[in-house]
Design a protein around this nucleic acid. Structure first.
Length: 645
RNA sequence: GCCACCAUAGCUCAGUAGGUAGAGCACCUCACUUGUAAUGAGGGGGUCGCGGGUUCGAUUCCUGCUGGUGGCUCCA
């Protein structure tokens, strides 16, 4: 065996080193600045500690903050530091898991002391002490038996459970000072490499995610190499709080949720209703252009309908209790499809009729656990912009492409340019969760993939994310704060047509089964609007704004003229308000700004004389006096073009 | 549903080491006639989430419930 190994670098260059050289030795050659920002190394596609001896030829890359994997190592080590601090503060504490996550890390702990804000402050202080001590992270591999013995000594029952299930026969533990943790690693060279920490929240989580297990306390935190990064992150959290749709929904009088009516049952206030109806109108218009037929169906239906569809079986835990009417049982509808199928079935169809597209803003009701309800994003009654397409097999792909196009048009119009697509397939390991047979599923998944390819969609595949009756294309929006949300959805269904015995007569005069596409671009109006509120921080583009223009007279001497301005705007269907109050202009402007009204039209003596208005654009400030006609035209243009300004 | 935390005026919040509460904004009245993010003065408004307990006395301490928040499980 040669005593030299060849290490290749990302730039393609390579160099020979003695066998057993450690990444940190190589780093020393490469200079201090890189060494200082490197957290770990990637050797032959495996992330390793910087002091791990390299035993074979291979390529190496050094991981820094700029690599997702570098961040993971950094946060993972921080989570160990937190566990270390907790162990020192509460020696009886036992530990679950403590991984890095998208933004930071958490650790699940079992400790008798409730972790209050005070305790969090103590833990943070202790963490800083651990960091200041700059103890090295030391990896130790051992046999499974040794590891079991070690954690038995420490009476760490969760770690023992993990060890027992571990496939790896040589588990690793990491030491930092007196603290030991079962861990795959890798870690930073030492605790001192972690710089700016912040514990963010305390929550709880079932051990191993199962409701049957004990609840552990989970502490979330984050850390950054630079103080400015932490400050900026905290600022972003503050910003997110200000954008929270629940807060804006109240401040801007958009919707109301009150226990007097019931949790998860939102009511739309006048301004929110304008927003909602404007979106509905937009969708109706797009659907009309694409040949959809509007229908309306009731909010409840005979239980048998849902037994036929299979919804009852799959939704009985998430549906409201049934309603007894005479001798029949009824159910609040959890989905609109069975109703739409009845409409399809009401008359025979020829292959010439297809595709038939039935669309409805259908309100559905689902029982959600009380702890799940949040604002408009998780509710018990919500309205889907639902439609069902009954298509022939040969029309399926085109129809799917048309739907994908519609969703893209809708998202782009609303300023969601950053979205990804997930093809949600069934989990082959778990076939009994789904209806239908293998052939149907394979066909449906193939159709979806072909359509996605034909439309040049960028997508990833999510195994086990399908609906019970078919695979889906789910549209995930990334909002301005970088969070992703699942909104629009398209589903191909071979199961329901069979269950409901849907048919059409083909040109061969034989009966055929149509394929059904379920789709909802917004998904749920409630959730969509919640995201929309946060996306725009309540400052909606003019076409969506509940109030599009505020007319602000300087003194009541201009009231007559101001009323004329109002009439003129109203005649163009511009939603406007006239602030007649006896207040200073600065005050009126402040309130209009706080209400995030896009256009403020200030009218004083000069404007009244010249049939003009002084335009102030939301956030942009004073644009000066302009002829009234021109301003009206500009606002109308904004509305008609659905300008995002 | 589970765990932790929280609940004071319409909103945002202060306060009472146990002696039935206060500010700002909002609302009403009056004065001011105002030029690009808060004019001034006065006034009304609270069973301190709901029930029980401890106490001479509870908004404050204990306890049960309800609702909210952060998560977990589940989902559009």
């Amino acid at each position: 065996m040669s005593e030299l190994i060849r290490i290749e670098f990302p730039d393609g260059k390579s160099k020979e080193y003695p066998r057993g050289i450690r990444p940190q030795d190589i780093l020393k050659e490469l200079g201090r600045s890189l060494a200082e920002k490197t957290f770990a190394a990637k050797f032959n596609d495996k992330v390793v500690d910087l002091d791990r001896p390299l035993q074979s030829d291979g390529n190496i890359r050094f991981l820094t903050w700029d690599d997702a994997e570098g961040k993971e190592v950094y946060w993972h080590s921080t989570s160990h530091i937190m566990a270390h601090a907790i162990k020192e503060l509460y020696p009886e504490a036992q530990f679950g898991v403590g991984p890095p996550i998208e933004d930071g890390f958490y650790y699940d702990i079992d400790v008798n002391t409730p972790i209050t804000a005070e305790e969090v402050a103590k833990i943070e202080a202790k963490m800083k002490a651990v960091i200041a001590a700059d103890q090295p992270f030391r990896r130790e591999e051992m046999s499974k038996e040794e590891a079991i013995q070690l954690f038995q000594q420490r009476a760490d029952k969760y770690k023992l459970e993990l060890l027992n299930d571990l496939a790896d026969n040589r588990p690793s533990v990491y030491h930092e000072g007196a603290f030991v943790d079962l861990c795959r690693g890798p870690h930073l060279p030492s605790t001192g490499r972690v710089k700016n920490i912040k514990l963010l929240s305390v929550a709880s989580a079932y051990w191993r995610g199962s409701e049957k297990n004990k609840m552990l306390q989970r502490i979330y935190g984050i850390s950054f190499p630079k103080k400015e990064m932490l400050d900026e992150y905290l600022k972003r959290l503050e910003e997110a709080k200000k954008r929270d749709h629940r807060r804006l929904g109240q401040e801007l009088e958009l919707f109301l949720i009150t226990p007097k009516v019931g949790g998860g049952l939102p009511m739309w206030l006048p301004k929110g209703t304008i927003l909602r109806e404007t979106l509905e109108k937009f969708m109706r218009e797009e659907q009309r252009k694409r040949g959809y037929l509007p229908v309306v169906t009731p909010h409840i239906g005979n239980l048998n309908l849902y037994k036929t569809s299979g919804h009852y079986e799959h939704y009985k835990d998430s549906g409201f209790s049934t309603i007894k009417v005479e001798d029949e049982e009824y159910m609040l509808k959890p989905m609109n499809c069975p109703h739409h199928f009845q409409i399809y079935l009401a008359k025979p169809h020829s292959y010439r009729d297809l595709p038939i597209r039935l669309a409805e803003f259908g309100t559905v009701y689902r029982y959600e656990q009380s702890g799940e309800l949040t604002g408009l994003t998780r509710v018990r009654g919500f309205t889907q912009d639902d439609a069902h397409m009954f298509v022939r097999q040969d029309q399926l792909k085109d129809e799917l492409c048309d739907v994908i196009d519609l969703i893209q048009v809708v998202f782009r119009t609303l300023g969601f340019s950053d979205f990804t697509t997930r093809l949600s397939f069934r989990d082959p390991q778990n076939k009994n969760k789904y209806g239908g047979n293998d052939a149907q599923w394979e066909q449906a998944e193939r159709d979806i993939k072909e359509a996605a390819d034909a439309c040049a969609l960028k997508y990833f595949i999510g195994i086990g994310e399908a609906a019970f009756y078919g695979p889906k294309i789910d549209f995930m929006i990334r909002d301005v704060l970088g969070r992703t949300w699942q909104l629009g959805t398209v589903q191909v269904d071979y199961v329901m047509p069979e269950r409901f015995n849907l048919e059409y007569t083909g040109n061969d005069n034989q009966k055929h089964r149509p394929v059904v596409i379920h789709r909802a671009p917004f998904g749920s109006l409630e959730r969509f609007i919640a995201i929309l509120i946060e996306h725009f921080a309540g400052a909606f583009p003019t076409w969506l704004a509940p109030v599009q223009a505020a007319i602000l007279p300087i003194t009541d001497a201009q009231l007559d003229y101001a009323n004329k301005v109002k009439e003129l705007l109203a005649a163009q269907e511009i939603r406007c308000v006239l602030d007649e109050r006896n207040e200073k202009i600065g005050h009126k402007i402040r309130e209009a700004e706080l209400q995030k009204i896009p256009y403020m039209l200030v009218v004083g003596a000069k404007e009244a004389e010249n049939t003009a208005v002084a335009v102030r654009k939301r956030r942009a400030g004073d644009l000066g006096s302009m002829p009234l006609e021109a301003v009206v035209q500009k606002i109308v243009e904004d509305i008609q073009s659905k300008s995002l300004e």
